[in-house]
């Protein structure tokens, strides 16, 4: 079970069982972005409101595995009230943590916390996903969906 405990940390299971920020906002004024994982059928739909360049509210609907749903829930909590610029930076850090380069794998083995990952907070619990490469897409689905939504704002 040791491998599994690294993947299914208590905080992840908590977000899965009690997902935060579920629901849907009216569009407009909210913006909508949908993401799919074609491999497993997971889907996530985000609605979010931007005010003064920051994410004021974000709501999630969709279905999927514990990792995809917990990651979405944790993301919603993490980006609340953050500026779009900060959200993009956070997503870069998160995706860097999720990358399966060997040095990242090695880094994931160490219990040291880097300066950058401090800002990831609870999101760090998802670090264990890196050791299960097929599940990385589950963890990054909501982030990629949000980034697409933010890109569409510029478009």
């Amino acid at each position: 079970m040791s491998g599994l405990e690294e993947l299914y940390k208590e905080i992840i299971l908590d977000h899965y069982r009690n997902p935060r920020h579920r629901g849907e906002l009216d569009c407009p004024p909210a913006h909508k972005s949908e993401g799919f994982n074609p491999l497993c059928g997971d889907e996530v739909s985000l609605t979010f409101e931007i005010e003064d360049g920051s994410i004021k509210q974000l709501r999630i609907t969709g279905q999927g595995c514990s990792i995809s749903q917990a990651s979405a829930s944790m993301m919603a909590a993490a980006v609340q009230d953050k500026s779009i610029e900060d959200v993009r930076m956070l997503s870069r850090e998160f995706k860097a943590m999720m990358s399966i380069h060997e040095e990242t794998m090695a880094a994931a083995d160490q219990e040291t916390v880097s300066a950058a990952s401090l800002t990831l907070g609870d999101l760090e619990a998802l670090k264990g996903v890196v050791k299960f490469p097929v599940r990385i897409k589950c963890a990054t689905l909501s982030w990629n969906t949000l980034l697409t939504g933010l890109d569409d704002l510029d478009g």
């Binding site: 599994l4 497993c40 514990s66 990792i67 299960f132």
Partner: peptide, 9 residues
């Protein structure tokens, strides 16, 4: 339980 989680376990 999502199929992905089940197969992982």
């Amino acid at each position: 339980i999502h199929p992905h989680d089940l197969s992982q376990v």
